[in-house]
Design a binder for these strands. Sequence first.
DNA 1: TAGCTTTGTCATCGATCGATGACTTACTTG
DNA 2: CAAGTAAGTCATCGATCGATGACAAAGCTA
Lengths: 194, 194
Amino acid sequence: MTYDDFMSEPKRRDKAATRTALLDAARRRFTEHGFDGTGVRDIAADAGIDATLIFRYFGSKQALFEEAVHVAVPEGIGRRARAEPAALAEAMLREVVFAERAEPGGEHPLLVMLRSAGRPEVRARLREQVCGDYLADFAERLGGDDAELRAELVGALLIGIGVMRSVIDSPELSRVSFEQTRELVAAMVTALEG
Amino acid sequence: MTYDDFMSEPKRRDKAATRTALLDAARRRFTEHGFDGTGVRDIAADAGIDATLIFRYFGSKQALFEEAVHVAVPEGIGRRARAEPAALAEAMLREVVFAERAEPGGEHPLLVMLRSAGRPEVRARLREQVCGDYLADFAERLGGDDAELRAELVGALLIGIGVMRSVIDSPELSRVSFEQTRELVAAMVTALEG
DNA sequence: TAGCTTTGTCATCGATCGATGACTTACTTG
DNA sequence: CAAGTAAGTCATCGATCGATGACAAAGCTA
């Protein structure tokens, strides 16, 4: 079969494949241009799929966004984490900031949401996930008087690193290795433990 | 003169006042809803001014945005700063993150821009201002091998605190005093100096 | 193969967007 | 007061937005 034959053949119909193709394209678009900067027609065109199917399979652009940026907090990081503070921070740094994600888009949903922080619902979800899921038990592992505050400061550091890398694209932090970053972050976190 | 008389009187015509009224309203809207989430009609309505004047006085919505988030880096913070690293970080923390800005909107332009980080031009400006203007000489003050990297880490921490307060509205960092934050930040910055 | 369900396509709607140009009114200047 | 300019108003354009419903075609089942 020639290439032209292949291209002119009617496409195979596959609901699941269409859905994930839309999700992948959506993640890429939302990552680069944010929610408001992305149109349903852009997503559909990237995926080579009719835009109408977005509404049939996801209901609305908003619902597609939520499913695209949905993330399950990994075991060992969120609530009921058992590691020491410095090790916990390292795990979060690796998972959120330095994630080499297999899925297209390549960035952690938390950072994708930051690109759409103009929308109140997105900010609300960010707060839930960051303060609730990720930093929940971090304060307990830290201990001391103002543990919650110091936990949030670690969160701020990690988010800031993510912003420097993914939004600002700073010359150093964006290019340096995980190892090198890890050591410096560990020093800063340890300074909060005492 | 009664209230109704006052209200029915034709408005005084004042180009400068109209311009600043539009700028103030724009800052508020852009702060809360980002660039894409804000329409020129919203801004004009808030200011009680016809939307057409935005284009006469600023040329385009984009130009209005740029003027609204424009900021002059204060002496003693950016290039040619003379203070020690910890003191420099404190100055930036006060100026960028804890700024009680007189102008409406109440937030530093860098944080406003973060709400519109979906737009590439905004990201480019962010990089210029953060890495260029603000962190430029910070590395020199730090000294040592990977000074640039450690300077960017301080920038990441400050930006992260700003995000936690202004975007995520985290329970602790958003409500705690400048003094309390300052001490913990100083500890983290000092950990990078060694 | 006949009939039904699922999947994909097409035309289009109403709202909203940024932006333009013509027009009216107020203020200044001679 | 008359004329000219500056400031504000109004109608509207073309593009794009999210979303809907009718329709065509593919694939499964009997």
